Simulated scan of single mutants.
Amino acid sequence: MKFLGIALMMLMMSSVARADEGMKTEASKYGFQDTQARLEKVLKEKGLTVFAIIDHAEGAHQAGLKMNSATVTIFGNPKGGTPFMVSAPKAAIDFPLKALVWADAAGKVWVGYNTVSWIVERHHIEGQDELTKKLDGLLAAIAKAATE
């Protein structure tokens, strides 16, 4: 029985570690509002469509709760995401792409995003290596432009 408990704990720990594997984060030199504005600006400059902006802190406020600033921006371009969804329809849960801008407990602002490589691995997508590499590079450039 003790062995089962240890095995279960190890499985849970590996699941937590795996959940963070695909998320990249960049510390921002700017405050929350400026980082979010820079993110939106670079997305538009890159010709990407911003589909939605979800302000989690505002939602918390409306529910009478408090949380640090946290905004998810959903963005993309059908030419980038569609080939992945054609290969694996369930990948649509991860497209369009998303970026999270948040302030941690110390007030430090961050930008985070899931890599396309992680999405490809998660959905066992094959044959999209070149596009995956291109989009991973684009996401890294977007995060860098928003934070530096």
Rank of each mutant, 00 (worst) to 15 (best):
A88K: 15
A57R: 08
E21A: 14
V50Q: 15
Q128Y: 01
G31L: 04
L97H: 08
A143T: 06
S87R: 07
A57C: 01
S14A: 14
A105D: 15
N77T: 11
M9T: 06
R18M: 14
A60D: 03
G80L: 12
A37P: 07
A7R: 04
V116Q: 02
M85H: 03
R122K: 14
A27L: 10
G47K: 05
W118T: 12
A17R: 09
Q36N: 05
E126G: 07
K41C: 04
A17V: 14
E45W: 12
K29P: 01
R18F: 07
L65R: 13
K44D: 12
V72S: 08
R38W: 04
Q33L: 11
G5H: 00
A37C: 08
K79Q: 14
K24D: 06
A99Q: 11
V101Q: 08
Q36L: 10
A105N: 11
K108R: 13
G76E: 15
A141S: 09
H56L: 10
A27V: 07
A60F: 10
V111Q: 06
T132D: 01
K46W: 06
E130Y: 02
G81E: 12
A27Q: 15
I119H: 01
T71K: 13
P78E: 10
I125C: 03
K108A: 11
I119E: 02
I125H: 00
M1R: 00
A141D: 15
K79I: 03
V101E: 07
A27C: 06
A7Q: 04
L65P: 03
A19Q: 09
D129C: 03
N68T: 10
L11E: 03
M85S: 01
M23W: 06
D94T: 05
G76H: 13
T132L: 00
A52T: 13
T73C: 05
L97Q: 14
N68L: 00
F3Y: 12
L131S: 13
E148L: 05
A143H: 07
P83Q: 04
S117T: 15
M13A: 08
F51W: 14
R38V: 04
V86F: 13
S28C: 06
T73D: 08
M67D: 04
V50T: 15
T115F: 02
E126V: 12
A145W: 07
A146P: 11
K44V: 14
K90L: 10
M13S: 04
A92K: 11
Y30H: 10
F95G: 05
E121V: 07
E130L: 09
K98N: 11
L8E: 01
E121A: 14
L8V: 00
K44W: 11
A105V: 03
I54R: 07
G107Y: 12
M67S: 11
V111D: 10
A19K: 10
H124W: 01
T132F: 00
F32E: 05
K2F: 01
L11A: 05
V72I: 11
A57N: 08
H123T: 03
K41G: 09
F32G: 04
M23C: 08
S14K: 03
L48N: 02
L139E: 13
H123V: 08
L48P: 05
E40Q: 04
N68M: 02
L48C: 09
S87C: 00
E40W: 05
V120H: 00
A27T: 10
R38K: 05
